[in-house]
Design a binder for these strands. Structure first.
Length: 294
DNA sequence: AAGAACTCCTGTTGGC
DNA sequence: TGCCAACAGGAGTTCT
C-alpha cells in the first residue's frame, strides 16, 4: 500500500500534532500486527515526548525523549488518522453510533497530552510497530539492509549503474527491491519506468555498461524516479483503496497515473498508439506500454 | 547466493 | 443472488 510518497505525506501531516506533544496513554487492542508488538508497548510510551518524526524508506520514526524510537510501518492497509479532541474527526463520522469508536480494524490509539488522539487501523495487519533504542537502529534487522533514499543526492546514475551491473533480474524487480532503493513500491516502479521509456522486463544489468557505468537510459530512470516521487508527494500521495492522509483528506496522484491500473487503455504518451498491458512479475502486477517502453 | 515463489490477513470485485 | 477465484500501495521466509 503506502509507498514512499504516501508515508512522507502521513509524516508531514502527523508531525505538527505529534512533535513536541507526549503520550498520555496508549490503547492497544491486540498483541500483534504483522509481528508481536514489543513488550509493555503502551507502558513504555506513556509519558514520553516526541522530539522528532522522521522517515526512512517506508518507515515512520518517532524519536522519543528517552532515546527510544517508535518505529511504524503501514504495510498494505495501515492508516494513521488524527482525531482532534475539539471538533469531530473527519475519519470517524462513518462509524458514528453502531460501532462507537471501536471500528473492527482499529488496533491502536495513541492519546496525546493535548487531547488529540492518533488512531491506527490496519485491515490486513501487514503493518508493524516496534520500540528500538536510537543507537541500535542502524544495526537493527529492519534497517541494516535498506538501500539508498531515492530522493537523496546519493541516488545518481553512477550509483545505480554500479548496483545494477551484472544483475540478472528484471529492472522492475530491482526497482522495488528495498535493499537497493528504499521506498519505491509497485505503483511508482511502474510509473517511473513509463516515464523513462524503459520496459519493465528489461534485465537490470542492461542499464549499466560492462564496467558498471551509466547509460542514457540509466540517467533517464534516475530522473524519472525522482520526479515521479517528488510530484506524488506534492499531490499528497495516491489514494486507491485504503490510503488517506493523516487528516483524512485523500491524495490525488492517482489521477496522474499513466500506466498503473490502466490495462487495455490507450498509452498516454504523446504520439504513441500503444495499449497498456498488465503482466505479472514475481507475483506483482506490472503495467506498461509495450510500444513505447523498451 | 541470487532470484523467484510462497506466506501472512481481510475485503472487494468480477465472472459464471 | 450466490459462490469462488483473483487481486490489492509490502516484505520476511523458504524454495530452487
Amino acid at each position: 500500500m503506502p509507498e514512499l510518497p504516501e508515508v512522507e505525506t502521513v509524516r508531514l501531516g502527523l508531525a505538527p500534532v505529534l512533535v513536541g506533544n507526549s503520550f498520555a496513554s496508549v490503547e492497544q487492542r491486540r498483541g500483534d500486527l504483522r509481528f508481536p508488538l514489543p513488550k509493555h508497548f503502551a507502558a513504555r510510551l506513556q509519558g514520553r515526548k516526541v522530539d522528532a518524526l522522521d522517515r526512512r524508506a517506508k518507515y515512520l520514526l518517532a524519536r522519543l525523549d528517552d532515546g527510544e524510537v517508535l518505529v511504524m510501518h503501514l504495510g498494505m492497509t495501515g492508516r494513521l488518522s488524527i482525531d482532534h479532541a475539539n471538533g469531530k474527526s473527519l475519519d470517524l463520522g462513518e462509524f458514528a453510533d453502531e460501532q462507537k469508536r471501536t471500528p473492527k480494524h482499529e488496533h491502536i490509539v495513541f492519546h496525546l497530552a493535548d487531547g488529540t488522539a492518533i488512531r491506527y487501523s490496519d485491515t490486513r495487519r501487514f503493518g508493524l510497530m516496534d520500540l528500538i533504542a536510537s543507537e541500535a537502529l542502524p544495526a537493527h534487522a529492519l534497517f541494516k539492509g535498506l538501500g539508498v533514499e531515492p530522493l537523496s543526492a546519493e541516488f545518481t546514475p553512477d550509483w545505480l549503474a554500479a548496483k545494477l551491473k551484472g544483475k540478472a533480474t528484471s529492472i522492475k524487480a530491482a526497482l522495488i527491491d528495498q535493499r537497493l532503493i528504499a521506498g519505491i513500491g509497485n505503483i511508482y516502479a511502474c510509473e517511473a519506468l513509463f516515464r523513462a521509456g524503459i520496459s519493465p522486463i528489461r534485465l537490470a544489468r542492461t542499464l549499466a555498461t560492462k564496467t558498471g557505468k551509466p547509460r542514457k537510459a540509466t540517467e533517464a530512470l534516475v530522473k524519472a524516479v525522482k520526479s515521479v516521487l517528488a510530484e506524488a508527494i506534492k499531490a499528497g500521495g495516491s489514494s486507491l483503496r485504503d490510503y488517506a492522509r493523516a487528516d483524512g483528506r485523500l491524495g490525488s496522484f492517482q489521477h496522474s497515473f499513466k500506466v498503473y491500473g490502466r490495462e487495455g487503455k490507450p498509452c498516454r504518451k504523446k504520439g504513441c498508439r500503444g495499449t497498456v498491458r498488465r503482466i505479472v512479475q514475481s507475483g506483482r502486477s506490472t503495467f506498461y506500454c509495450p510500444s513505447c517502453q523498451r
